[in-house]
């Protein structure tokens, strides 16, 4: 088994050229935005540098760095899980009274014009959606992205984010009703 030489560990320049993109890709699909992903990658290199002396050479350098990044991502999930009182989501249904579970009148879906279907390919529409996702509370945006855009399994998201499946569906439901309304207001109503 090839032993990692000291220069390998003490020369972080090669880390960035060899692994930065790989780590960044791993992070970006799991967190909400580019800046967070960059920070996580940077922190991973820091942590790697700090604990380089503990590296036993059992795993490849890349595997070792990924394991550090994974811990960083879990920490990040914990942080947004515990964030309280952040931008709250608008309710779409009455929460109590006679009309409990019914649509709130001004949130009722409006008809989109017949051309709507043709715009699916539009780049600007995708950007409009991106903008709408960005307006969601961080945790909602994250869960929606993981599930819908990155195609993670429900079970996997629940495990990583430490939430229950029913919790996940409530979040998806609120995110989707919110996104529908946002696209309607910003795009299809025009």
């Amino acid at each position: 088994m090839p032993h990692l030489t000291n220069t390998n560990i003490l020369n972080p320049d090669t880390w960035i050229d060899n692994y930065a993109d790989y780590l960044y890709n791993y992070a970006i699909v799991r967190v909400n935005n580019e800046d967070t992903a960059k920070d996580l990658v940077q922190e991973t290199f820091f942590a790697g540098l700090k604990s380089a002396k503990n590296f036993e050479g059992k795993a490849s350098e890349r595997t070792w760095l990924i394991s550090i990044l994974k811990r960083k991502i879990v920490d990040y999930y914990r942080k947004i899980n515990s964030k309280k009182g952040q931008a709250e989501i608008k309710m779409n249904f009455y929460e109590d009274g006679d009309k409990e579970g019914n649509w709130i009148e001004e949130r009722v879906p409006q008809r989109w014009d017949n051309e709507a279907e043709k715009q699916i390919e539009s780049e600007e529409l995708r950007n409009a959606l991106e903008h709408c996702i960005g307006n969601l509370p961080e945790k909602y945006g994250l869960v929606f992205r993981l599930k819908t855009i990155q195609g993670f399994e429900t079970e996997e998201i629940c495990k990583e984010l430490d939430i229950s499946p029913s919790n996940l569906w409530v979040i998806i439901h609120r995110a989707r009703t919110q996104l529908r309304k946002c696209l309607e207001d910003n795009w299809f109503k025009k």
């Binding site: 930065a20 940077q42 279907e117 699916i120 390919e121 995708r126 959606l129 819908t148």
Partner: peptide, 30 residues
């Protein structure tokens, strides 16, 4: 809602890379 799903599917999976500038900045800090 189905349309929202379709739009999302179009968004899926582009490969992301860091820019040269990003990497330079990281190197410097490191």
């Amino acid at each position: 809602n189905s349309m929202l799903t379709k739009i999302c599917q179009k968004k899926t999976a582009q490969n992301n890379c860091l820019t040269k500038e990003d990497k330079q900045a990281m190197k410097k800090v490191l």
